[in-house]
Nucleic acid binder design. Structure first.
Lengths: 195, 195
DNA sequence: GCACTGTATTTCGTTGCCGAAGTTTCGGCA
DNA sequence: TGCCGAAACTTCGGCAACGAAATACAGTGC
């Protein structure tokens, strides 16, 4: 397995991104192929998993965003506030309302005004909701497992660790605020990130 | 670099995803934390870069999708067909039409019916378009470089290589159809992928 | 008690994306 | 030549996401 990295470049199998980056080299010689390659692949993979999820959960009568919402809710033990979901799902507040409304119509969640803080709303997974989520659940994990399964456990750990270092940099709002530049509104784009 | 993995868990800095995965462990003990961690981080990072791009190019009067379209066009040397862009940008045909129309209104591209094959349309970057693209370009690469820059060159290569192996698996429509399960329509989700 | 600031959620209007259907053109084949 | 399936692009209808503003409430200071 790890032997693969010792192959010569000629015999190493190429993926779509290799071609993509190669096409760009002459136009933008200054960019690092490995940076571009890694970023492109992450984007592609994310999209791919999204599509698979979409079509996978469709067999259970759910749409991707519906499943994701149920999933987020289940991750909080079946009870959460819209704000929690907004944070977990990285969504605009308005979107959460829309999703919950649709799910409520289908009988997958119930919204009840919180009694202790009446600004809040408690969202709860119904039995039907939990069931739908459960049924669709396996399908989703399978593709991730299948893809990441081509790596050895050690490599998977490596990958996850490398990404963590990158993400830590991303979560750091401003690594080196030189203060000499006003640095235009980084407000929502950065602070909303952790949420 | 592997030195970092030898830190004790206690002193290794944690990112958002660590908390996320940890929250899920009790609910779904069967999933591999490294798979989940890697996938989550890629998704997060992709989203993050998207937001940064959004707000970065806004300073040049562009929206993310506008820039991306110009970028794709520039990557083809300034000339392409809608189909090319559809493939490169991973978009539905209808979306390409919409984007190009908006860009044409702004004078960034020109669409002319191809003369040799009159089903086709030639899309060409205007001087104004190329200029807008050029101006916004640096801003975009910077964040990628900043984030991936926390890794050493060797690590970046490693990351890219690991991802290539994963992506190769993704591009493989179905590696091992077990045939014991009917495996519902994988049609569009998989074949449309390379496009 | 009352204004004030901040937070939680919803409503509203707009936008981009997508799937499906439609139109024109191409290429092969009789 | 004339037909027919496939291809390239567009139009159409609908949906989900977003930003901004509105609503409702909590907590604080006076």
């Amino acid at each position: 397995m790890t032997r693969a990295t010792h192959r010569t470049a000629a015999e190493r199998p190429r993926d779509w991104t290799d071609g993509h980056v190669e096409r760009w080299r002459p136009v933008l010689p200054h960019l690092d192929p490995d940076v571009e390659g890694a970023v492109t692949r992450m984007s592609k993979l994310t999209r791919h998993l999204g599509r698979v999820r979409e079509q996978g959960v469709a067999d259970y009568g759910l749409q991707k965003h519906e499943f994701d919402t149920l999933h987020g809710l289940a991750g909080r033990g079946g009870r959460a506030t819209p704000s929690d979901l907004r944070a977990d799902l990285n969504l605009a507040p308005a979107s959460v309302t829309g999703r919950l409304e649709a799910l409520e119509r289908r009988g997958f969640v119930v919204r009840t005004p919180s009694s202790d803080d009446r600004r809040r709303v408690d969202v709860e997974l119904t039995e039907a909701g939990r069931l739908a989520w459960r049924r669709a659940l396996d399908v989703v994990g399978h593709e991730e497992q299948r893809l990441l399964g081509v790596l050895t456990p050690v490599e998977r750990r490596q990958l996850s660790d490398l990404l963590r270092r990158v993400l830590l940099a991303a979560e750091q709002p401003v690594p080196e605020a030189p203060a000499d530049r006003p640095r235009p509104r980084t407000d929502r784009a950065e602070t909303g990130w952790h949420g």
